[in-house]
Structures are given as C-alpha cells and as structure tokens.
Computed example of a mutant assay.
Amino acid sequence: MVDAILVRPARAFVYCMTNDPTFGELYKAKAILEADLEAAIDAFIADPTTVSFTIGEAYTVDPHAAVAASPFATATMAQANSSEYVKRSFVRMAILLSKPVRVGA
C-alpha cells in the first residue's frame, strides 16, 4: 500500500513511501531530522551494544541489529584501523536501510 506519491514532472522523478518505510525513506520525507540521525549514530559509536534508541518523537531504532545486518558495516566496525569518519558513514548507511519501530505501536 502506498501512503504518498510525489511526482516532479520536470525531472520525471517519482517517490513512493510505503506503509513500512525504512529510516532512509523517512529521512527523505523529512519525517526524521539530521540531528536525530546523528544522535543515533553517536549512541552506537559510544556503545555498540545499544539496542534501542529513540529517533524523533515517533520512532525507535536498534542500531546494533542494523549494523549486524550489514556485512560492510560489521566489517568496518571490526577493523581497528578504520577511521572514525568511515565507521560513522557505515553506521549511518546501516541505520538508514533499517526499518523503524513506531513508538507506542
């Protein structure tokens, strides 16, 4: 089921957000803020065992499961010589690809 369709004829771009969006889709739709996403990344970097983090007022993410589901993020976090920037980038990617849990749902 599709919640919203945004059509931009000038670019022939169609964006659909389903009833079960990823954090990436919510981010594109401006339903979550950059500051909230950065806070989730900071929480995981500080404590990789973090299993629940509230993003905004409506969603929670399990950063540990998101990173564990991404082979690239898992490998990057395991490498001692990976820079902070690279680690943050892969954690960000893993979170954006994960599915949120609605608070109170």
Rank of each mutant, 00 (worst) to 15 (best):
E57R: 09
G56C: 06
E57Y: 09
A4L: 12
A43Y: 09
A73G: 12
K87R: 15
F90P: 00
G104H: 04
N81V: 15
M77D: 12
A69Y: 02
A12I: 09
T60C: 07
D47E: 15
A105H: 10
R102V: 15
F53D: 03
T60Y: 08
R102E: 14
T76G: 01
L6N: 07
A31N: 09
S70G: 06
E25C: 04
R88Q: 11
G56R: 01
K99D: 01
A43I: 10
S98C: 06
R8L: 11
M77R: 06
A68N: 07
A46W: 15
F13K: 09
L33G: 03
A65Q: 15
V14Y: 14
D20S: 14
E34N: 11
M77F: 14
L6A: 05
F44R: 02
V86D: 06
G24C: 03
D36V: 05
D42F: 07
T54Q: 15
Y85D: 12
K28A: 13
P9F: 05
A66S: 14
S83F: 06
A73F: 10
T18V: 04
A39Q: 08
V67D: 02
I5D: 02
P9W: 03
T18C: 01
A39K: 06
Y27C: 01
I45G: 08
T18E: 11
A80Q: 14
A105S: 13
F53Q: 08
A43M: 12
A35R: 15
A75G: 13
T74M: 12
F90M: 10
T76Q: 02
A66C: 11
T22P: 02
S98I: 03
F13H: 13
Y85G: 01
P63F: 12
A4T: 13
F72E: 11
A12V: 08
F13R: 11
A94Q: 05
R88A: 13
A69T: 05
T50V: 15
I5Y: 09
A94N: 04
K30L: 13
T49N: 10
F44N: 02
F90R: 07
A66F: 09
L33I: 02
A39E: 11
A12G: 11
D20C: 05
Y27K: 05
P9H: 09
Q79C: 13
F13M: 09
I41W: 02
A31E: 14
L37Y: 06
V61H: 04
F44M: 06
R102D: 06
V51P: 03
M17I: 12
I45T: 09
I55S: 05
A4R: 10
P71Y: 05
